[in-house]
């Protein structure tokens, strides 16, 4: 009896490849740095390979993978809270890079949407986001930047929807406050009275 391709068990690569781009985006949102995002996703892939036999039986693999990534991110945060790779001293370009962490981001060909928003200073936004707690920044970027719905974020993070909604509200409010004194946000003051 011949075995048709549809009978074959997908390889690890075949299962994961369609999800890598999205996982990387999520990892980047979590970490804010290419190297850290690659590092995080690499860690996840190593763990997933050890469980590769389970993968083909998971019904909705995308959200499940996102959840694994999130859990790994949380674990790494705990680890690095104890063992942080620290920049010690430094001078010149290194100092400038820290003061303007997003200033060297490669964005050579912004699409129409990005081009329409050139009035905004991405560096200011980046600094504003850094002022948020990790929990607030994570939900804000997942919801407002990546377009996840609160219910989806709940399934990935396990955090109740009500808590997520509260965090999102606080994150937006805090970001508006931080940006309120910056051009071009200055004209858009929060409502009084």
């Amino acid at each position: 009896m011949s075995v048709t391709p549809t009978d074959e068990v997908p390889s690890f690569e075949q299962l994961l490849q369609p999800h890598l781009e999205k996982l990387y985006r999520l990892a980047y949102r979590f970490t804010g740095q290419v190297a850290d995002a690659e590092d995080l996703l690499q860690d996840v892939l190593v763990k997933l390979y050890q469980r590769r036999d389970e993968l083909s039986s998971i019904e909705d693999l995308g959200p499940w993978l996102s959840r694994v990534l999130y859990n790994q991110f949380v674990d790494r945060q705990r680890y690095y809270a104890r063992q942080r790779l620290r920049l010690v001293g430094g001078s010149g370009q290194g100092e400038a890079a820290r003061a303007d962490p997003i200033g060297n981001l490669a964005c050579p060909a912004p699409g129409p949407a990005a081009a329409a928003e050139q009035e905004f200073d991405i560096t200011q936004l980046s600094h504003g986001l850094e002022a948020l707690s990790l929990e607030h920044r994570t939900v804000l970027l997942m919801h407002d930047a990546e377009g996840y719905k609160l219910e989806e974020i709940h399934r990935i993070t396990g955090v109740p929807v009500g808590t997520l909604k509260s965090r999102l509200h606080r994150a937006r409010g805090r970001l508006r406050e931080v940006l309120a004194g910056m051009e071009p946000f200055r004209a858009d003051r929060r409502v009084r009275g």
């Binding site: 990387y24 985006r25 980047y28 949102r29 290419v34 995002a37 690659e38 981001l105 490669a106 964005c107 912004p110 949407a113 990005a114 329409a116 928003e117 905004f120 991405i122 936004l125 804000l140 970027l141 407002d144 930047a145 377009g147 937006r172 970001l175 508006r176 940006l179 946000f185 858009d188």
Partner: peptide
Amino acid sequence: RLQRVLRAYPVEGP
């Protein structure tokens, strides 16, 4: 406007 900026907030590729 802030929402639009967040949606356009770039992800640097790997």
